[in-house]
Design a protein around this nucleic acid. Sequence first.
DNA 1: GATATATATCGTATTATTACGATATAACGA
DNA 2: TCGTTATATCGTAATAATACGATATATATC
Lengths: 88, 88
Amino acid sequence: MPIDYAKESELLKALAHPVRLRMVEGLLGRECNVNKMVKALGLPQSTVSQHLGILKSRGIVRIRKEGVKTCYRINDDRIAALIKLLGK
Amino acid sequence: MPIDYAKESELLKALAHPVRLRMVEGLLGRECNVNKMVKALGLPQSTVSQHLGILKSRGIVRIRKEGVKTCYRINDDRIAALIKLLGK
DNA sequence: GATATATATCGTATTATTACGATATAACGA
DNA sequence: TCGTTATATCGTAATAATACGATATATATC
């Protein structure tokens, strides 16, 4: 399958940040709401939300609303394999 | 193996550019000198050289000198699998 | 409706990346 | 040594990404 360089480089760019990489790895196999991530990461809420927005806009994650909470989960099938590759 | 987020996000950042992604894919399985890439990509020589420098500094490619020519080739075993993943 | 909680968005200063012409360096052949 | 070819580096203007406080919005509870 021919690669869409512009599109796939956007995907990689979204993952190419230490905080987002950590977020994505943390979301493998389980969903998580924003507040939990804020606490786990020790970063300002606005910063975490901004990073999540980037991951969402690239289709890497998607959300599920649960009352007032927003639960994020992985939405791209390739992510798990990609993260696994990085650990080698 | 636990991921070094800073290190691996640097790897992804180096790949997260349409031109560099195209370069890397073009180098899968075969080496190529700078001038050939300049012609193939239709970009200024300084631009191509700058991108190659980024790929090299992250260990994604390495070089072999052949007289005046510099031949670039893939140097990271994970790259082929990563590119393959992107095409899915 | 008032309040508290969860999250998103805005504004913006700082820092990083990009593109590319100009210039430098290095190897080769005449 | 000169000229040519191949490549790297420099300088820099333009653009993009980042961090994060302030603020807005939405939902639940009382």
